[in-house]
Design a binder for these strands. Structure first.
Lengths: 344, 344
DNA sequence: CGTTCGCGTGAAATGGATTTCAAGGGATTT
DNA sequence: AAATCCCTTGAAATCCATTTCACGCGAACG
């Protein structure tokens, strides 16, 4: 491998000068040209490891996500990548598999590799511990979930608003007995969505004198396919089953749809509104309305904040909240569309 | 940050001894214990950057894939990751977006970061150039596609066999006019699958005196959703449209299904067999049979080969070919199942 | 004309771990 | 008792780019 010294010798200058040529130091034009030419001839590219060691910082940022197979996170990753490319930072992706231990290992690696910064979608709000990084003063941005007690910039989704939007849409479509399959209790991503659902339902019931929200209409599951499926089964087994359901994440929606199919009451007979885009939603028949998460923008924005920090800005900690967007996909929506026909 | 020197001073030994304690050198038990204790107290962990610089090799392997949003590659990534974890190598993922330039940048980064090795699913068989890595003697394993002219270990899928299996299954299910939506001409992953299709169809037609395979039954598309959709539309517009189609990758299958839905001839009226698992296939109604790609094992095997190379084995270059597995998912399969009923 | 300022330059220090080499000490062999 | 050997240990070299510091030269200024 050709080093900076080889280039220096060949060009008849000192290594310092070569370094300056590549890093914007002051060098006379004539020399700079000579160095560049020699470097090109020798196929020199600076050794990033040596540079990182000296600079105490690598030109790599870490992106730590809990589930690489969830399209939400891959789309987020694309956002980060595209934003990072603008400053010549490269992104390395680490998949924690929702495992706090695995996550800790990756956080340690990020620290030990002296990455320029880390964007982390925490595996757990309680148990994820960012102190390894904070202790070293490493720039960190949390996305989607902000670990408790962490003093970091964050980019979040307006989950409550999304929950409201989703529930309101189901009401508008004519459904009335609307249930909710929420995520794990205590997870803020789930609690906020649920709060949005509750708020809209409460208002609606008050206006229509509809009584109270049946407590059994709220189920907690684990954000996974299986959990959504069994929660939906439970709901369908109720004496007064719901005519629609707001599902708090995409994977559980897949499960809920499976349960509905088994029971033969698929949408639009039973309304389904998913929080988060269901992968390949176009394949689902009929098409499903969803609350779209701004996953790409989440990543893009987080990368932006991180780069500001890396550049050394001193602005106070910042939390950016991005809104969801309702995507209506039903051609003929509402319980009447098929339900009515079935009654004939 | 506490360094190896801090530990050495605190423990009253030389840095060399501390290094030996952590890297399996010979140190008397009593001293080793003291060093370990001091290191723990000081919270010392070796600086990976410095280590990489000295060792001329990082403890990281690069995994370069063309599309992080394709479940095939994410599953492959999981395989690599799980295998790598066993030797304390960490995996960094780079997404090339099927873009040869972006890929080249990542290859250069891998070289400059002195990664221990690279697993690459090439963006292009012709234009991907691994010489940056080969020049430095860096261990490389190709997965899924082997770039032309590269002297590297490889792990491939038995694409021809998969194509045969798929086509034979459609025949067994009772379909006769079977078309094929292949990938881009020249891509080996596509050509081999197509070859499998052709071989089985030729045999079948010969046996049944069915004449020649209509050339218009073979369409080439781009391995993407849109391509699959328009290819399927073209097929349906033929004077004698096929009654089944073998689609050469998962994304095009999604497109083909969309086109079939538009035309109202969804499976099983028109048979569909996808090469590669269709994501969330359980949502598709009715369930789809697929040729399962051993994506996870592809990754796992590649990581194994890579680790052998990293360890310095001298065995000759090796290509491992993994077989596909037909996954039958139809409950009532074949054109008669619904087609017959419709005729009544 | 002498001083100051600014700029370009190279020598050398720096970052932190690994590894070679030589030396020292204890045990074993002759 | 002397010679040999093996094992442990630390000093110092090494990996390579960046950056500080000091020097020297030419221009500008008093």
């Amino acid at each position: 491998m050709t080093t900076i010294n080889d280039v220096a010798r060949a060009a008849g200058v000192s290594p310092a000068t070569v370094s300056r040529v590549f890093n914007g130091g002051r060098v006379t034009a004539e020399r700079a040209e000579r160095v560049r030419k020699t470097a090109a001839e020798l196929g020199f590219s600076p050794n990033r490891v040596a540079r990182s060691l000296r600079m105490q910082r690598a030109s790599v940022i870490g992106l730590i996500i809990p589930d690489i197979e969830n399209p939400f996170f891959t789309s987020l990753a694309r956002g980060v990548e595209d934003a990072a490319q603008q400053t010549n930072l490269s992104v390395v992706l680490c998949n924690t598999d929702e495992d706090v231990d695995k996550e800790r290992r990756y956080l340690e690696i990020a620290a030990a590799e002296q990455m320029a910064g880390v964007i982390v979608a925490a595996a757990s709000r309680n148990r994820t511990d960012l102190s390894v990084l904070e202790g070293r003063g490493m720039p960190v941005v949390a996305v989607d979930r902000r670990p408790r007690g962490a003093s970091v910039d964050a980019v979040m989704v307006d989950n409550q608003h999304g929950g409201e939007e989703a529930t309101a849409h189901l009401l508008r479509s004519g459904y009335r007995r609307i249930a909710c399959i929420a995520g794990p209790e205590g997870a803020s991503t789930s609690d906020d969505r649920l709060a949005g659902y509750r708020a809209v339902m409460r208002d609606h019931l008050r206006e229509t004198d509809g009584g109270a929200l049946p407590p059994e209409y709220v189920r907690h599951a684990d954000f996974r396919v299986e959990g959504g499926r069994s929660a939906m089964r439970d709901l369908l087994a109720l004496p007064a089953p719901p005519d629609a359901v707001f599902v708090a994440n995409n994977l559980m929606t897949v499960g809920a749809l499976q349960a509905l199919r088994e029971a033969g009451t698929e949408p639009p007979r039973t309304g389904v509104l998913s929080f988060g885009d269901v992968p390949w939603a176009s394949l689902v028949r009929p098409p499903l309305s969803t609350v779209q998460l701004p996953s790409y923008d989440l990543g893009w924005t987080a990368a932006g904040l991180l780069q500001e920090r890396i550049a050394g800005t001193e602005r106070p900690l910042q939390t950016v909240v991005l809104r969801t967007a309702l995507q209506v996909r039903e051609s003929t929506s509402g319980p009447g569309a098929q339900g009515g026909a079935a009654r004939d």
